[in-house]
Amino acid sequence: MRRFEYHEPASLDEASALLVRHGADASLLAGGTDLLVEIKEHLRWPQHVVNVKKIPGLAALEYDERNGLRFGALVTARAIETAAVVRARYAGLAQAARELGSIQVRHRATVVGNICRASPSADTLPPLIADGASVRIHGPAGGRTVALEDFFTGPGRTVLAPGELVTEVVVPPPAPRTGKHYIKHGRRKAMELATVGVAVALTLERDACRDIRIALGAVAPTPIRARAAEAALRGRALDGGTIAAAARTAMGECRPISNVRGSAEYRREMVGVLVARAIERAREGAG
């Protein structure tokens, strides 16, 4: 690894001050499963590493029927994956957490870290966006809340200003008859980076789709919503025809690139296949 200086701030303000002081030379360390890899692979060379694990109050995971799910910046993917309430109410998120790296990685990796790394293919982002999640941000100028779907500005880039850090994720409670599903597409059954990630959260009313959110990963510079596809289904019955039409629409909404993991054409085609599959599975979950 490359040499760096190491800090263990005891409060958010202290952390924020360190980030301001060292600017681009500083990197935040929570789980470390991305940061340490990036340092070792020479993608980043921070002079200062700021470990936030000693800051109190960032490790909670709570749920109540009114406010939904809240979890702090130190909550690991493994904790999300195994929390009964997440499995029951946020099936897409639980599935995405379950497919992130290995169990060893998930015991260290935090979901907030997964968010802040802002990789277009990050697993937890599509389901969180489909769930309508937002993030709480602490910074030199105080706190603010940003909807997760507005948080990303490009690969590895977010709206965070210098000195700001994400402290918490808030996810609204699901309405009755809501079903969710996440499909990660890769060549292997584990240890993959998604070539396409599709998350769907939908709510049924009688036989029609009252509301639906479709979020796509790895097919644009940031995770995106397939808004036109959603609009095509909102208020409509979900059947083979409407689902197929929406899936085709979603194909038109994504902007994939080609790389060693897959061509743009293939990714686009998979958006079509997987959006349809995810809607069907989410509908089954909605009961």
Partner: peptide, 9 residues
């Protein structure tokens, strides 16, 4: 990650 050997699953 990208040199993909079959794993246990």
């Amino acid at each position: 990650v990208d040199y993909k050997m079959p794993l246990s699953l």
